[in-house]
Design a protein around this nucleic acid. Structure first.
Lengths: 336, 336
DNA sequence: TTGAAAGCGCTAACAG
DNA sequence: CTGTTAGCGCTTTCAA
C-alpha cells in the first residue's frame, strides 16, 4: 500500500478547508452549505477519493468484516456454504475473512485469535474434527464477539447455530425407497459416534418402523467411503440377493455400491434401488443419476450470516439463541 | 467488537509506565531494562493482551492481508486454488480477504474497490467471464497495489501470472492415447474463442502430427459439457465405430461420453479409450476410473501467493514480471 | 456554517 | 532506560 492514497486531509489542504468540513460534506451532514458540499464532493469524485476502511474501522470500532473458520475449503458442501455466506454478506455490506483449520485444533485456535486480532465483528465457525476444547470460542463470545456455529456445531457453547436435519433427511430418503416398493433396505452407515452417523441411522430406523418393516441388524453396515465399499465388496455381494434397496450415508458410497452391483449384473433401479445423501456434483454424473437428499450448503451459509448480522445489528436485543434447522430435500433421479 | 479489549494504554496506566515503554517491552526492544520487560510481558500475558491489528495496519501502512477475487467458489478447481493460497498465506503471516465475482464484471469492479479500500497489500485475481475492461485492475497496479493473475489471466495488463499449460496437458493426454495404441482419436473440444479451447486443441493436433497421424476435421467436435454429450448422443454414436480413443476437454464431458458408449455396448478401455482433463473428484468415481490430466489448483494457489508475497517483500527489486506455467501431469487410471 | 482538538490503538523519533 | 509527542486517516464533540 503505497502512500499514494489520497486522504481527507489532502482534500482539505487543497481546497483550503478543514478536514472536518470535508468529512461532513462527504457524508451529507446537514450543517454544511450546499456550496461547500458540492465543491468537496465534486473534487473528491475527480480525484477518486476513497475512504480508508482501516481508519474507519478503528474509529467506529466496527470492521464490517465477518470471520469464517472452516475445516476444509475443498469440499463441495463447504464451498457451497462459503459461497452462500459471501453472497449474503456482500449484499449487506460486510466482507469475509476466511481461514481454514484443515481439521486441526491447534490451527483453529490460532485462526480464531487472528480473526479476533483483526477485530472481526462476528465469527462463523464449523469446528474441526480434532477440536475437543472450546475455550477459544467461549472466550470470544464472553468478550463480546458473537459466534454462529454451522454444520459442525458445539453443544457445550450456547449460541446461534445452523444445522442440517440429518434425521429427517435420512427418514425421507428411506421412506422414498419404501414408497418405491423396497422392503429389504440395506443401510451403509457412518460410525455411530459421529453425530451424522447416529442421526441418519435413526432416521432410517424410524422410517422402517413406521412402515412396520423389521429392522435387521445385519442390514446396517458401517461403510461410509468408496474405498470401504471396494474392500467390503464380497460381503456386499453376498448380501445383495437379499435386498431390494440401499440407503447410503453419502453420495460417493452410494455411487460405489451402485457400480459394484452393476458390475455383477444387478440392474439399477429395477432390481435394487439406491439412494445417497448430500447431493454433491457426483450425483448427477453417476449412471444412472443418483437419487439423493440435497444438503443445501448455500442456504446454510446464507442463514448463518443472516443470524450473525441480525445479532450484530441488534446488540441490545435480548439474547435468546436460536438453532435453525435446515431440512434437506429429496432429489429424485433415476436410481430409485 | 466490544470495547472490552485491553490496550497498551490500559496496561501502561495500570503498571504506571508509559505506553511506549509497554510497546517496546512487548517487542523486545533493546533499550529496555529486563526488569520492566518482564513486568510488562508477564502482565500482558496475564490479561491476555492482543495487539489490535487494525491499529497496527494503519500505523505501519501494511495490512498483511491479501485480497482474492475469484469467479466462483463452488468449483473444485477454484476451491483447490483458494485452499493452496490460504495455506501458504497463513504460513507466511498473511490473511485472506475473499470475494467472488460470480462471473459478473460489475461485481468484480466493486470487489476490487472494496479490497483496495481495506488496503490489502496485494491482489490475487482470476477474471470473470464477462470482464472485457481492465481499468479497475490497471489502476490498482498503478497506485502501487501489486496484482497476480491466476488461471484466467488478462493479456492486456503486464504483471505476474500463473497459468496452466493447456497445450502441454492436451499434448500429453493425446500422446498417452497414442501410446496405448489409439490411432483414430476423437477430440471433444471447448469453443476455439476460449483460450483453453484453443490451446487444448493445439496440443491435441501437435501430438497427432508428431506421430504422423492425420488430423481429420470431423474428429474434432465442439462439445464441452455433459448436457451437450447427451444432446449429440446420436452423432457421437454414429462416429463411434470409426474411433478408438477420445480426448475430452474436461472430465465431466469425458465421463458423459464414456457412459453413452458403455450404454451402447462399447467396452472401455478395450474398444475405445477415453481421457479427460482436470482431475476433479469425479474422475475417480467414474467407472472405470477416468484417466485424466491433473490441473493442480492447490499448487497454482500456492504459487500465486508466493509470487505476490515475493513482490510485496521486495518492493525495491526491479520489476520484471514473471509468468509461471504449471504443467499438468498425466493421471493414468483405467479408462485408457 | 465551519474549524480546532481529541481520540480510536499503536509506534517511532526525539528528548531527557 | 523511559517518557513525550506526533501521527497513521477518520469522526465527532465543542467552540466560534
Amino acid at each position: 500500500m503505497k502512500p499514494s492514497h489520497i486522504t481527507i486531509k489532502d482534500i482539505a489542504r487543497i481546497l483550503g478547508v478543514s478536514p472536518s468540513t470535508v468529512s461532513r460534506a462527504l457524508k451529507d451532514h446537514p450543517d454544511i452549505s450546499e456550496e461547500t458540499r458540492n465543491l468537496v464532493k465534486t473534487f473528491a469524485e475527480k480525484v477518486k477519493y476513497r475512504p480508508n476502511a482501516l481508519a474507519l474501522s478503528l474509529r467506529k470500532q466496527k470492521t464490517n468484516t465477518l470471520g469464517l473458520i472452516i475445516p476444509e475449503i475443498v469440499h463441495h458442501f463447504f464451498s457451497s456454504v462459503i459461497s452462500g455466506m459471501e453472497d449474503l454478506a456482500y449484499g449487506e455490506g460486510y466482507h469475509m475473512m476466511i481461514c481454514q483449520s484443515n481439521e486441526n485444533y491447534y490451527r483453529e485456535v490460532i485462526n480464531t485469535q487472528a480473526l479476533l486480532d483483526h477485530r472481526v465483528d462476528g465469527l462463523l465457525v464449523s469446528i474441526s474434527k480434532t477440536t475437543k476444547e472450546f475455550n477459544h470460542l467461549q472466550t470470544a463470545i464472553d468478550n463480546g464477539t458473537p459466534v454462529v456455529f454451522f454444520d459442525r456445531i458445539c453443544d457445550e457453547i450456547e449460541t446461534d447455530r445452523v444445522i442440517t436435519d440429518d434425521f429427517e433427511g435420512a427418514r425421507v430418503a428411506t421412506e422414498h425407497l419404501i414408497e418405491c416398493g423396497c422392503k429389504k433396505i440395506l443401510h451403509l452407515a457412518a460410525p455411530k459416534h459421529l453425530l451424522i452417523g447416529k442421526k441418519r441411522y435413526e432416521g432410517y430406523c424410524h422410517a422402517l418402523k413406521s412402515h412396520n418393516i423389521e429392522i435387521k441388524e445385519e442390514f446396517t453396515l458401517k461403510c461410509d467411503t468408496r474405498e470401504e465399499v471396494l474392500t467390503m465388496r464380497q460381503h456386499l455381494l453376498d448380501i445383495a440377493p437379499e435386498i431390494d434397496g440401499v440407503f447410503a450415508v453419502n453420495d460417493s458410497t452410494a455411487i460405489a455400491i451402485m457400480q459394484v452391483l452393476q458390475q455383477n449384473g444387478y440392474k439399477i433401479p429395477d432390481q435394487i434401488k439406491v439412494i445417497g445423501f448430500g447431493d454433491g456434483p457426483n450425483a448427477t454424473i453417476a449412471s444412472p443419476p443418483l437419487s439423493t437428499v440435497e444438503q443445501k450448503g448455500y442456504e446454510m451459509g446464507r442463514e448463518a450470516v443472516r443470524m450473525l448480522i441480525q445479532r450484530l445489528e441488534n446488540p441490545t436485543a435480548p439474547i435468546n439463541y436460536q438453532t435453525k434447522i435446515i431440512t434437506p430435500t429429496l432429489k429424485k433421479r433415476s436410481s430409485t
